[in-house]
Amino acid sequence: METTCICGDPETSKNHSFGAVSVPIYQTATFAHPGIGESTGHNYTRESNPTRDELEKTVSALEGAVDTVACTSGMAAISLMMELFDSGSHFVCTEDLYGGSVRIFEALEKKRGFSFSYINTADVEAVEKAITDQTKALYIETPSNPTMQVTDLAEMSRLATKHGLLLIVDNTFLSPYLQNPIAQGADLVVHSGTKFLGGHNDTLAGFLCTPIKALAEQIRYLFKTIGSGLSPFDSFLVLRGIKTLSVRVERQQENAMKIASWLKEQKKVTDVYYVGLPEHPGYEINQKQSRGAGSMISFRTDTEETARKVLERVKLISYAESLGGVESLITYPMLQTHGDVPVEIRERLGITETFLRLSVGIENVDDLIADLEQALA
């Protein structure tokens, strides 16, 4: 995995012009034809571009996919994916989804006649009960955003096969370095490449991967038709980020475990949600299907006043949306990432005024703990 992060597809990366070690940025909109009916393999960047191709092949290698498309954002990748389905389709989804996913699903309910059932997908029986004759796919986030629920992907694959459904997994939180849903039976994998894959909070990107050739062909046709392809320069930035994915994630995960353990001991913290803690209800399943717990922590404070004080007093940690970068970020999900989720659903999930989400970076862990300590004081 570490070598794939660096080298990607050896056949592609070893054939750069002039022996360039880094992928060149092919900042061109169009490509000349050698002759009538002939092509260099690229015609127009909306359809394909050599820089983006290398990124897509690298992500395919990391996820075990036959093909991947790189989009302008994670939401663009989800939008593209939903074009695979006909009007009237029903989806069974993890109840605790990224708020942007819920927002686009609500829009599609109105415009396309789609319907969505939000279920605790850790409960296999509840998932099966939610499947109807109109159900076309299971849409899973594990760990979920932001309450860190864990879903058994092998069980979801079993249900998908039994009922003739597609299994879709958002793998943003763990990245392909720690979890490979395709190996667990997923048919489609989506990523916000802005997060761990890019890793530096400096560019937006999204990915849609599949191990199924027929699906890959459909996706490629929609991709070039809709025009959601990532630019050559942004493709270069994400490729550069992936080269350090393994070392970044290892350091972030190490820091997260220390911070989660420290948070457990704080009087003003009532609950800590981190899948690397043995007491987490999804610990064993996550251990079974992944290679680590990642670096996303959520925690609950004793009062709303404490939560707001933390957000306003952190100095090293930034109060900002997003996650997965080298910088540590803290977020107020009820106002930010999940602001569009109906209040009654948020409160049922526990995303309240006292709930905070922390994306742990690669800073010195003692400095991060000291920052949290002074903010909680």
Rank of each mutant, 00 (worst) to 15 (best):
E254V: 08
I226T: 06
R240W: 01
L245M: 08
V275E: 09
S322K: 08
A260D: 10
S290H: 06
G294Q: 14
S298G: 14
N255E: 04
I259G: 01
L263G: 01
F299M: 03
S322H: 06
V269N: 03
S235E: 03
M296E: 14
F236M: 11
E265F: 06
A293H: 13
E284D: 12
A293T: 13
D302W: 00
M296W: 13
T244W: 02
E250D: 15
Q287V: 10
D302P: 05
F299T: 03
L316H: 12
L237Q: 04
S298P: 11
K315H: 14
E284S: 09
A320G: 10
S295P: 14
R313A: 15
T244H: 05
R291E: 15
D271K: 08
E265P: 03
T303R: 00
I226R: 01
E217Q: 15
K258N: 02
S295G: 13
G229Y: 01
Q266M: 00
L263M: 06
P281Q: 03
N286T: 04
L239R: 05
E250R: 14
S231G: 12
L215N: 12
I259L: 05
L215R: 02
G276Q: 13
V269Y: 01
P232W: 06
S246P: 10
V269Q: 00
R308D: 10
F236L: 11
Y319I: 12
Y274R: 12
K288F: 04
F233P: 05
A307Q: 01
E217P: 13
L222S: 11
K267S: 06
R248K: 02
V272A: 02
S290C: 03
L215E: 08
D302F: 01
L245D: 12
